[in-house]
């Protein structure tokens, strides 16, 4: 119990720093990829600090509450994950958080957020199936590994597996990394809102958040980023301590890959995003799931 409390407090305090730092590094690397000097790595923190000093202005005061709820559920999902709770619950509370974001945005009824919200829902439709599939995949993989434990959704069980989950879930890994582009709001899938306002919907879903409200979304994004990267790490982690190091390297590589994809692709339209992501989910996730199911039934048959 106390261990869980420490982990939760540690997550709440450290995750924004790691997330902000990652974003700072992202901005620096992006800048260097574009032959710019770029902002200092601490720039995201300075931005957020500045946002808190700005006036909160909204046509609907409810927005602030909804955004706080969004932040709460993101933090909740992250805490659940790190104390080793149910993976399915983690992804569901993440979806709840996203719904609060959508509600906060649509509470203002402006055209730009309207379009942004529609697109956000479209994006959720693209990435939620893969998130759930990932949870299912981990469940099935946990049964595959000879750990002596039953099939489990619990993160605390998954990390004690003697084989890395990626051995059974390569397709899921590709699919999950693919939807991370949507989750991190990076080109080519930064439709609903982008890190740059140079978009037809300006800042899309976040267009109506001002001052502190926008800072809350930024911070929530950092928590979410850390949590999702931890899920990427979960693909690698097993009972061997060295696997943690490998997981960290894989996470760094995946993050770099996201930056690279962000810098080498144009923003696509929503229908193409839909086709591509579902294509990837069905091809990689589907085939992987199919094989996993069949292999496990074969094994059962032989047992």
């Amino acid at each position: 119990m106390i261990r869980s409390m420490i982990i939760i407090i540690g997550f709440i305090v450290l995750a924004p720093f790691i997330g902000g730092l990652l974003e700072g590094i992202d901005r620096k690397i992006s800048a260097r990829m574009q032959r710019r000097v770029g902002p200092p790595i601490t720039q995201p923190f300075m931005d957020v600090a500045k946002l808190f000093n700005k006036e909160f202005l909204s046509v609907n005061k409810q927005q602030l509450f909804l955004l706080l709820a969004h932040l709460f559920f993101v933090v909740f999902a992250g805490s659940m994950f790190f104390i080793g709770s149910d993976l399915l619950m983690v992804f569901f509370s993440l979806s709840t958080a996203a719904m609060f974001m959508v509600m906060a945005a649509s509470s203002t009824h402006t055209p730009y957020t309207g379009v942004g919200t529609m697109r956000e829902l479209m994006q959720m439709m693209c990435c939620e199936p893969m998130e759930l599939l990932t949870a299912v995949g981990f469940y099935l993989a946990s049964g595959m590994a000879k750990t002596g434990i039953e099939k489990s959704f619990l993160v605390s069980d998954l990390i004690h597996s003697n084989v890395s989950a990626i051995m059974y879930l390569p397709g899921f890994f590709i699919g999950f990394v693919f939807i991370l582009t949507i989750k991190f709001r990076k080109s080519p899938f930064d439709l609903s809102t982008s890190h740059h306002a140079h978009q037809e919907v300006v800042k899309g879903i976040t267009a109506e958040f001002s001052g502190g409200a926008y800072a809350i979304t930024e911070i929530a994004e950092w928590y979410e980023e850390v949590m999702l990267l931890a899920v990427v790490g979960l693909f690698i982690v097993n009972s061997n301590p060295i696997s943690y190091l490998v997981a960290a390297l894989v996470v760094i590589f995946v993050y770099f890959l996201e930056i690279l994809i962000d810098n080498t692709s144009a923003r696509v339209k929503w229908d193409l995003m839909f086709k591509i992501t579902w294509g990837v989910i069905i091809v990689f996730g589907g085939i992987n799931l199919f094989l996993l199911e069949n292999v496990s039934s074969f094994m059962k048959f032989f047992q």
């Binding site: 690397i29 800048a31 690279l260």
Partner: peptide, 11 residues
């Protein structure tokens, strides 16, 4: 992009 990453910034 990768070539740029390992070159001096122009700005």
């Amino acid at each position: 992009v990768l070539k740029n990453l390992f070159s001096e910034p122009e700005t």
